[in-house]
């Protein structure tokens, strides 16, 4: 599918009052999600958008960010396997809503925004600074929750920052906090 047609289709959709949110696969039937999914119908573009949101929530700094740790896949798998059908529909609608919100506010796709623009945009959803649809609010909150869960539960974070022990071999009921890792 060439770019012009895609842009046109998206503009058409936005023009239709933005109330009817078509499933993403209708928009772009060629590029499908790279991750095999059971229930969720997600296009490649939506998958890229999700990865960009996850990346913005926990970015790469001097340590790996959530995207590098494979958290976008975790978010999709959890929504795909562990959410109800209704929540999945909301999730896809919310993803598209975040993209529309980006276009409305910044005149470009979320994916094309600068890091600080992405952060501000998502922050404005979180802090309710901007009025967004319930789908957008719910989807953002779900992506953020799953991103944090996936990130803090990743091997990298658990072993490097939380001093995770698989086989503690001991229990002490009362030790000084200075002798104990905070996690």
């Amino acid at each position: 599918m060439d770019m012009n047609r895609r842009v046109l289709l998206k503009q058409l959709m936005l023009a239709s009052a933005g109330a009817v949110l078509l499933p993403g696969c209708v928009l772009d039937s060629k590029k499908v999600a790279a991750i095999p999914l059971h229930n969720l119908k997600i296009s490649g573009n939506q998958e890229d958008l999700l990865a960009a949101i996850v990346d913005a929530i926990i970015p790469k700094t001097d340590t790996p960010g959530a995207k590098e740790l494979g958290i976008p896949k975790f978010v999709l798998v959890m929504v795909d396997d562990c959410s109800s059908k209704e929540d999945q529909i909301t999730f896809v609608a919310g993803l598209d809503g975040i993209e529309s919100f980006s276009k409305e506010k910044l005149g470009k796709s979320f994916i094309d925004c600068e890091p600080n623009e992405k952060e501000e945009l998502l922050l404005s959803i979180e802090t309710k600074k901007e009025v967004v649809s319930p789908e957008v609010e719910k989807t953002f909150s779900s992506i953020k929750g799953l991103t944090i869960w996936g990130y803090t539960g990743s091997e990298y974070v658990m072993t490097n920052f939380y001093k995770f022990e698989f086989v503690p071999g001991r229990f002490h009921g009362c030790v000084s906090v200075t002798n104990q890792s905070p996690a």
Binding site: I57, I58, P59, T63, L122, I148, F161, P182, A183
Partner: peptide, 22 residues
């Protein structure tokens, strides 16, 4: 319990997550 401040977005959030407090 472990307290983690999960408010915010980006590098500051990441920093908070890596430093939970008791």
């Amino acid at each position: 319990s472990s307290n983690t401040d999960s408010n915010g977005i980006g590098a500051s959030l990441k920093d908070q997550l890596l430093k939970p407090t008791l």
